Amino acid sequence: MQAEDAGLVERYLEHVRVEKRLAQRTVELYALDLQKLLENAQTAAVPLLRVQNAHVRRWVAQMHGGGRSGRGIALILSGWRGFYAWLGREGRVTSNPVQDVRAPKVAKPLPKALSVDDAVQFAEFSEDEADPWLEARDAAIVELLYGCGLRVGELVGLDAQASGSAKGWIDLQAGEAHVLGKGSKRRTVPVGRKAIASLRHWLDLRGGGLKGEQPALFVGRHGSRLSAQAIWQRLKQRSLKAGLATPVHPHMLRHSFASHVLQSSGDLRAVQELLGHANIGTTQVYTRLDFQHLAKAYDAAHPRAKRK
């Protein structure tokens, strides 16, 4: 059995090397994947030609239980699937036992969020020697992104005042931001005292640096509406000048907003409304961020958590 199985693997590797003309490194990776298949089949005392769907699922569970990542398992399954597809074309098997088997889902990485101290440091940073016009604009951008949890697309769509054509606008009197979010859904979010103060300061200076009329709330020196890319660049530069270890981008401020509101309130539904998430499942990722914060506090403070 072992000799026949090894022969089938060798024939397949020759096929992909000569007929499919795959790169040598790719062939080597296929060989490693199929060696794993051979080992599993030998342990289960089943010939490769008689491997069933249940065998493959058991081996996937074993790999996952052994710590192999979902991405790594997916690559192995791809190699096995190609091998059995070739056996099918050769008339050696009637069905592909790997066809409907999928690797475990890869865990989504947690969104990056600033600590409360870093977020406050960034929001309060002021560059003394900077152009006052640019400094006022960038400070207002930071306050809105962190203070309201806006998406960068929602921010760049804001106009200085409400109008029939405005996608979004700020109502300073009411302390509200009216934004157009994903799926063309409108929502209203509160604007905090610090953000309102920054916006008033920016609006006082904004007109003095413009050429012509421009409805956009945030503009460049030439009067055109700021792009999302320009805001990414300005935040990155500002975070480095502020002394933060990690370059800040707009979505990081949105994540920080959500995480910090949840830490303080514990109200997941409120955070969902503030972020404009259609599904609360999208918002639940911030409960994991909140747990990380609590776990760190526990490890640092509880006498039974400290390790010698």
Rank of each mutant, 00 (worst) to 15 (best):
D118K: 02
Q233P: 01
G91K: 01
T43I: 08
L262P: 02
R186Y: 11
A119N: 06
Q229C: 11
E19Y: 14
Q161A: 15
I73Y: 10
Y146Q: 03
W133P: 01
I76L: 15
A41N: 08
Q52E: 15
R92G: 04
R187S: 03
D33R: 00
L34V: 04
V152D: 06
R307K: 13
A44E: 11
Y12Q: 03
E154Y: 05
A61S: 10
R269T: 09
L294Q: 06
H251G: 06
P47V: 10
V142A: 02
M63W: 15
L29M: 12
I73E: 13
T43S: 14
L134W: 08
A113C: 02
S95G: 13
A61K: 04
G149N: 00
S239P: 03
R193E: 09
V18L: 12
D33H: 05
D138H: 00
P47T: 08
E154M: 07
A139E: 09
R25E: 15
L217A: 06
A103M: 10
E90Y: 02
V271G: 03
Q292V: 05
L205Y: 02
A107D: 14
R102I: 04
P104F: 03
V98D: 00
C148M: 03
L205E: 11
K185E: 08
A61V: 03
D204A: 15
R254G: 12
L158M: 06
Q173F: 10
L13A: 07
D118H: 02
E143A: 02
Q173I: 13
L172N: 08
R68D: 13
P215K: 02
V120Q: 11
K105T: 09
A300N: 10
R206I: 02
L226N: 06
K194T: 13
Y30C: 07
I73K: 13
E127P: 00
E10C: 05
V106Y: 06
A113G: 01
A297C: 11
R17L: 12
F122E: 00
E90F: 00
A166G: 10
G7F: 05
A140C: 03
A130N: 04
E39R: 09
G72T: 15
R137C: 11
H178E: 07
S184Y: 13
A85W: 09
N40K: 12
A195P: 00
Y146R: 01
A31G: 13
E176S: 09
Q24Y: 14
L77V: 07
A31V: 04
E154S: 07
R102Q: 14
P215E: 04
G91T: 00
V56T: 10
Q99M: 12
K182G: 02
G207D: 14
T287R: 03
A103L: 07
D33W: 06
H55G: 11
T26E: 09
G266Y: 11
A41T: 04
R17A: 14
V46S: 08
G276E: 07
E14S: 15
D204V: 09
A6P: 01
D299K: 12
A228M: 05
P111I: 01
K20M: 14
L150W: 05
G181A: 08
D5M: 05
K236A: 09
Y84I: 01
L235D: 11
H15T: 11
W86V: 00
A3P: 02
S256T: 15
H201M: 10
E273Q: 15
S115I: 03
W202T: 01
R221A: 13
